Amino acid sequence: MEDTSESDSVQISKSFEALTGIVTIQLKFKQPSYKSSAKVLRVKGGDGISAIIETKDGHIAYRNSDDTYKNLIEVKEGQWYDVKLVVNLQAQTTSTYINDELKLENANFYRPATTIDFIESFTPGSGAFGHNIDNLLISQQTEVEEEVDPEGEIVFEKNFNEDVVGEEPTDVTVSEAGGTVSVVDLPSAENKSVYLEDTSEETNVILSKSFDDLVGTVTVDLKFMQPSYTSSTKIVRVKGGCNSCNHRNKE
């Protein structure tokens, strides 16, 4: 932008549909000859001016709502600067990066705004001092609500603490063709568990539970321990009408 006037400014601007959420504006800026009050970037919405970055006292600076300034970096004539302004419309704050370095975080808006639909850059208007703008980029991140696990209905719950030590557990099905299934006082008499003791070289021992068909998201939760490690133990195997899955010990 070549400014040849002593009293009027030269401006470049871009309008777009109103944006919400988190909006990022990036550009490259250079002043061939330094002059204060050049608007590197001014951001507007339907409510007015929300953010201003300009040259001030030899620096690129962020303009606060009380018209004071936060210096971001000293300006050198003829040098390019990468400027990035991240505008959080929900939090009503901005963060400014210069040359990919965070210089100002969570600064307040110059004026409150609910949307952004316009940006501009213009010369000081008080002398023939121009500046260069390049690589302008505007992007939007609409905030996504964190996914919350639904509170499901417990279909079956069993801790074996009410069962008798040395006997088969209740409310589950056992197959003892290869050994025995019994309640044990492990890790303690108050916190019992079930031991699947396999005494066969070729037949396994099974504990299972059947229930009505379930759909949607189903969670299976249990504790597992092996006194002596062996491969191919089925920790949990889940079956349905057409699909199944395994979690097993594997070398």
Rank of each mutant, 00 (worst) to 15 (best):
M1C: 06
T4Y: 09
S5A: 06
V10T: 12
V10W: 05
S15E: 14
E17P: 00
A18S: 15
L19M: 15
T20P: 01
I25M: 09
Q26L: 02
L27N: 11
K28L: 03
F29Q: 05
K30R: 15
Q31R: 10
P32F: 04
S33L: 08
Y34W: 07
S36K: 14
S37M: 07
S37Q: 07
V40R: 09
V40F: 11
L41I: 08
L41K: 04
G46E: 12
I49H: 05
I49N: 11
I49K: 10
A51Q: 09
I53E: 08
T55N: 07
T55G: 08
I60S: 08
I60G: 07
A61T: 11
A61R: 09
R63C: 03
R63S: 06
R63G: 01
N64V: 00
D66N: 15
L72T: 02
I73D: 03
I73T: 09
G78F: 06
W80Y: 06
D82G: 12
D82T: 11
K84Q: 12
K84W: 03
L85W: 00
V87W: 06
N88I: 03
L89Q: 05
L89K: 05
A91R: 05
A91I: 00
T93Y: 02
T96R: 03
T96A: 12
E101N: 14
L102H: 10
E105W: 03
E105R: 13
N108K: 12
N108C: 00
P112Q: 14
A113S: 15
I116V: 12
I116M: 13
D117G: 13
S121N: 08
S121V: 03
G125T: 02
S126L: 03
G127N: 10
F129P: 00
I133V: 14
L137R: 14
L137H: 10
I138K: 10
S139G: 01
S139Q: 11
T142F: 02
E146P: 05
V148G: 04
D149Y: 09
D149A: 10
P150G: 06
E151W: 04
E153A: 09
I154H: 11
I154L: 12
F156M: 07
K158M: 04
N159H: 13
N161E: 09
E162F: 11
E162V: 11
V164Q: 14
V164Y: 10
V165Q: 10
V165H: 07
V165P: 02
P169V: 14
T173I: 10
V174T: 15
V174L: 07
S175M: 05
A177T: 10
G179H: 05
S188G: 00
E190P: 00
N191L: 06
N191H: 08
S193F: 08
L196S: 09
L196T: 05
L196I: 03
T199S: 13
S200E: 02
S200I: 02
E202P: 00
I206L: 14
K209W: 06
F211G: 04
F211P: 01
D212K: 13
L214E: 11
V215E: 15
V215F: 12
G216Y: 13
T217A: 05
T219A: 08
V220W: 15
L222M: 15
L222A: 15
L222V: 07
M225H: 15
S231T: 12
S231L: 01
S231N: 12
S231E: 14
S232L: 08
T233L: 09
K234C: 00
I235P: 04
K239A: 03
G240E: 09
N243E: 07
N246W: 07
H247T: 12
R248F: 10
N249C: 06
E251P: 01
